[in-house]
Design a protein around this nucleic acid. Sequence first.
DNA 1: CTGTATCCTCTACGATACTG
DNA 2: CAGTATCGTAGAGGATACAG
Lengths: 134, 134
Amino acid sequence: MADRIDAPADICDDMTPDQQRLIRDILARVVDKWSLWALTELTADGPLRFSRLLERVEGISQKSLTATLRQLERDGFVTRTVVVRSPIRVDYAATELGHALIRRFQPLWLWAAGRLPDFVAARAAFDARTEADR
Amino acid sequence: MADRIDAPADICDDMTPDQQRLIRDILARVVDKWSLWALTELTADGPLRFSRLLERVEGISQKSLTATLRQLERDGFVTRTVVVRSPIRVDYAATELGHALIRRFQPLWLWAAGRLPDFVAARAAFDARTEADR
DNA sequence: CTGTATCCTCTACGATACTG
DNA sequence: CAGTATCGTAGAGGATACAG
C-alpha cells in the first residue's frame, strides 16, 4: 500500500486561510497528548477493542479515550465497529489514512530521537543560564 | 548544511520512558498553537525582532509570544540576542536545530495539504452520520 | 463492556496595566 | 521596545457515578 505522491511545494501558496487552519488543526490534534499514541497502537496491532486500548494507552482516562477516538474517527484516521453481542463490544481500526499518517510521522519521531542529546543539552544550558542571572 | 543521518528504527525500543516522554514533549510543543508558526517565520526570513514577530504571527498576544519564544529557546530551536541600544532591541534567530526541525516537518505538512480533500470528506461523512442517528 | 454526565481542578491564553 | 504582573475566562482532562 503505497502513499500518494506528495503535493507540489507551491500548493501552500494556493491555500485559503480556511484550508491552512484545517491542516494546522489536523496536525495539532495528531500530536496532542493521546491521539498519536492511540493511533500508533492501532496501526501496530490491528483492530483493538476499547478496553484493550484503555490498557495500552497508559494513563489515559476513559473519558479522554472516548473523546480522542471520536476525533480520530471524525478526521478519518480510524473506523469504529460495534459488535452487537452481549456483552457489547466495539472494535477500532486504523484506516489507510491513519496508517499513512503514522508512516509520515515516523521520520520526524526518529529524527527527534536521534537529536535527543541536543535537546537535553539545550535545556541544561538554558536552565543553568537562567538560574544564574535574569 | 545537511541533516544528520536518521537514527536507526530500533532506537525507539531502547528508549527509557523518560526519553520517550521528552520526545513527545518536544514534538507536542512544536505543533502547539504558535511555536511552529513563529519558528517558520524565523527560518523563512532570518533574524527578527520581537515586535516584528508580534506582527507576523497574527493573533498571538505579547504574553504568549514571550512564552513561546522562551520554550523554543530552551529547547534549542532559537537564539535570543539582546542589542543594548536605546530603545532596547532583541533579535530572535532560528538555530541549526530549528532549521532542521522545519525541514523535517515540511513533508508532513505537504502530505496533509495533499490529503485535505480526504479530511474534508471524512468530517462531512462523520457529521452527516452523527446528525442522523446516535 | 462501552459509553455518557457531572463535578472539579489545572492550565493556556488574552486583555490590561505597569517597569527597565 | 521588550518584558513582567495580575486578572479573568475558557477548555482540557481526571475521578466518579450512572445508563444501555
